[in-house]
Simulated scan of single mutants.
Amino acid sequence: MGTWSTTAFGNDFALDWAQDLQESKDLFFIEDTLNNVLSADSAEYLEAPFAAEGLAAIEVLARVYGKRSEIDEDDENTEELDAWVEEVSKKASKRRTDLIEKSQRAIEHILSERSELRELWQDSEHYEQWQASVTDLRSRIAA
């Protein structure tokens, strides 16, 4: 996996996922991604690509609800995504508590010892930064 940042879109998996999201016109693709993270297949061990996509989905959901991170406001990798968020935000006028709850459970799973992505970051010198980024996302999605 190509990774250059601890933010949700700082890796190839997330950017590939964002390209697929562009074909969607609502929150279904986000929900489907969260369901993959929380599926029975991922319960025992969550593979890194699914975890990275899950964080990207939660970041997009946070943006849809007006909770964008200050850290990545000028991220040129997400300019097209920002246009998608603006369009979908008009339709998603109220927060879906089911997606918020799934997002919170997904973050807990991604941060757990059953997560390959957490293991990969833990083995790097940037683990604390990544963990802080995910914790920030958790607080933004809950707000």
Rank of each mutant, 00 (worst) to 15 (best):
89 S>Q: 14
75 D>G: 03
65 Y>Q: 08
33 T>N: 06
94 K>G: 01
127 Y>E: 07
78 T>D: 01
18 A>H: 02
43 A>P: 00
115 S>L: 05
119 E>L: 10
34 L>K: 10
136 D>A: 15
119 E>P: 00
136 D>F: 05
81 L>V: 10
11 N>Y: 10
47 E>L: 14
132 A>M: 08
56 A>T: 07
103 S>C: 03
43 A>I: 09
82 D>F: 08
18 A>P: 02
107 I>W: 08
119 E>Y: 00
137 L>F: 07
95 R>E: 15
23 E>P: 00
39 S>V: 05
86 E>T: 11
19 Q>S: 13
27 L>P: 00
116 E>R: 07
123 D>H: 09
70 E>Y: 02
98 D>N: 13
98 D>L: 04
100 I>H: 07
110 I>F: 08
52 A>I: 01
72 D>N: 13
82 D>L: 09
101 E>D: 15
134 V>H: 09
96 R>L: 13
105 R>A: 15
67 K>D: 02
114 R>A: 14
14 A>P: 01
73 E>G: 03
85 V>M: 03
98 D>Y: 10
123 D>V: 00
76 E>D: 15
123 D>K: 11
26 D>G: 12
13 F>D: 14
66 G>D: 12
132 A>Y: 06
119 E>A: 10
89 S>P: 05
26 D>W: 03
94 K>A: 12
8 A>D: 03
112 S>F: 11
24 S>I: 00
121 W>T: 05
36 N>H: 10
44 E>P: 01
100 I>N: 04
137 L>E: 07
23 E>I: 02
25 K>R: 09
66 G>V: 04
94 K>L: 10
14 A>W: 02
35 N>P: 00
44 E>L: 13
69 S>K: 01
59 E>K: 03
115 S>H: 11
109 H>W: 04
7 T>R: 05
9 F>T: 01
107 I>M: 04
17 W>F: 11
59 E>S: 14
17 W>A: 05
101 E>L: 10
33 T>K: 07
117 L>W: 15
70 E>R: 12
49 P>V: 03
71 I>Q: 10
136 D>C: 06
49 P>F: 06
35 N>Q: 13
44 E>I: 07
15 L>P: 01
81 L>Y: 04
44 E>S: 13
50 F>N: 08
132 A>K: 11
111 L>E: 14
66 G>I: 06
142 A>Y: 00
71 I>G: 00
49 P>G: 04
15 L>R: 13
49 P>H: 06
36 N>E: 14
60 V>Q: 00
110 I>V: 12
15 L>M: 10
38 L>T: 07
83 A>M: 06
106 A>L: 03
124 S>N: 04
62 A>P: 04
31 E>V: 04
128 E>K: 14
83 A>T: 07
95 R>T: 15
43 A>V: 03
89 S>C: 06
54 G>Y: 12
54 G>S: 08
129 Q>G: 09
116 E>S: 09
50 F>K: 13
75 D>H: 01
59 E>V: 02
96 R>D: 15
133 S>R: 11
74 D>T: 05
126 H>E: 14
67 K>V: 02
109 H>D: 01
1 M>W: 04
132 A>T: 05
9 F>L: 02
2 G>W: 09
133 S>E: 15
117 L>N: 02
